[in-house]
Amino acid sequence: MPITTTSRTVTATALAAAALTLITACHDTPGSKADNPLSAVSPAPAPAPGDANPPDPGGRVACTPEMLRFHAGALPHRDRRMLLKVTNFSGRTCDFAAQRYPLLRIGEGRQAALPAIRASRPLTVVSLAPGDTAYAMILTSAGGPAGRGHRGRRISQFGVALTGRAAPTQVGLDGRAPVHVDPRTATVTYWQPSSVAARQW
């Protein structure tokens, strides 16, 4: 009897040792998940507020005075014509969809903006890629009988607003040569995509 009991005890001990060895080998095998940090899965961080649709750095926006350089001056050999140019020096494309012609104010005070020439409206909204230029022709007074009898004034600068609620940006004339303008009969074209289009008016 003692011999049988001893044999059973040795057999049970051997089985337990084999099982422990197998479990240890499973956990210590090279390449297992415990030894490979790349296989661990961490929960993704919650998006910060406002990051669901981050702004597109190359997206189109409305043109603002801070994005543009303004130039204006009388056209040689063109009576009653003054050309306004705006160049986009920013790194983003912008457009004039909100206000498709410049709001020009001649003189001081709360004078109304010059009316636009409706026939000059382009078929599509003028947009400016970085470095591009848009144009608007200013007819400084009416021609023919409509322009007679109005004294007007000589100006060396005028105000340009890109939207109805924006404060006008003062634009000086190239060369500072004064130009005679009659605010009561002067008009302006819509923004044009080229100087050729603007010079047609």
Rank of each mutant, 00 (worst) to 15 (best):
G59A: 03
A62I: 09
L68S: 01
K33L: 12
R69I: 04
P37F: 06
P47S: 10
T64L: 02
G58T: 11
P65W: 04
D56P: 00
T29G: 06
A52P: 00
T29W: 04
D28G: 07
P45D: 06
H27I: 12
D56H: 00
A44W: 07
D28T: 13
H27L: 14
P65T: 02
K33I: 11
S39D: 14
P45V: 04
D56F: 00
H71G: 06
N36G: 03
S32A: 04
C26F: 10
D28I: 07
E66T: 14
C26K: 15
G50R: 14
F70C: 08
C26E: 10
H71K: 10
P57S: 02
G59D: 01
A62Q: 11
D28V: 09
D35Q: 15
S42I: 03
A34H: 08
T29K: 13
C26L: 14
V41M: 09
C63I: 04
F70A: 05
G59S: 06
G59F: 00
S32R: 06
P43D: 09
P30C: 01
P37M: 06
C63T: 07
V61P: 00
P45F: 05
A25K: 14
V41P: 05
M67G: 05
V61M: 12
F70P: 00
A25P: 02
H71P: 02
G50E: 08
A34M: 09
A34S: 13
A44R: 14
L68C: 02
A44H: 06
G59Q: 03
P43G: 08
F70G: 01
N36F: 03
G50M: 11
R69P: 04
K33G: 13
C26M: 14
N36K: 08
M67Y: 02
V61C: 06
H71L: 09
S39K: 15
N53F: 08
M67F: 00
L38G: 11
E66D: 15
G58Y: 03
P37I: 05
D35R: 15
P45L: 07
D56M: 02
P43M: 10
P57F: 02
D35C: 13
L68Q: 01
S39T: 15
